[in-house]
Write a protein that binds this DNA or RNA. Structure first.
Length: 157
DNA sequence: GCCAACGTTGGC
DNA sequence: GCCAACGTTGGC
């Protein structure tokens, strides 16, 4: 089982949005970056866990934990010409993009902010904290995972 | 609102 | 295959 971090802009899709979904489960579509695509398609497996990170908002923070409840399958939104995630290069018989399903599992009673993450030397190698790191799907090491979970209290959702 | 970093596009 | 131009991301 491996650990990940998923970025989202809460203006677009937030932790509260996820908690309000039926079964607190949503599709995770619209990833249009090849590096992130490769992680979804090749590395992320059902049962893996991921931090849910709010970007471009105050405060920027990890707010909860989701479980991957369905591994990679073709992103059908790429095939819909009327959808904002449409990509004319993707084809049904040869999909370019992949999506997955995630479910809210736990939330941080106190969100762990980007500022706080940066203040911990042991987290200095975190992908999220590297200059210019724009990847919206990132790996998290087991050490980083445990360390960050210990920074806040978790509660089941 | 700014702008550095990054990814993609397209002419050559 | 190179690389300049362009568009986007995302922290500040």
């Amino acid at each position: 089982m491996r650990y990940w971090l998923l970025k989202t802009e809460p203006n677009t899709y937030s932790w509260d949005d996820l908690k309000n979904e039926q079964n607190m489960t949503t599709t995770w579509e619209g990833v249009r970056n090849y590096q992130a695509r490769n992680l979804i398609r090749d590395e992320i497996k059902e049962g893996d866990l991921a931090f849910f990170y709010h970007s471009v908002v105050k405060p920027m923070a990890i707010v909860g934990i989701v479980e991957i409840v369905r591994g990679a399958y073709p992103d059908h939104f790429a095939l819909d010409p009327n959808h904002k995630y449409f990509d004319p290069k993707s084809r049904a018989d040869k999909p370019t993009w992949y999506m997955m399903d995630v479910r809210a599992r736990e939330e941080f009673i106190r969100p762990v902010t980007l500022t706080e993450l940066k203040s911990h030397p042991l987290l200095s190698q975190m992908r999220l904290l590297q200059k210019g790191s724009r990847l919206s799907v990132q790996p998290v090491t087991p050490m980083e995972w445990r360390y960050i979970c210990d920074l806040s209290q978790l509660r089941k959702v």
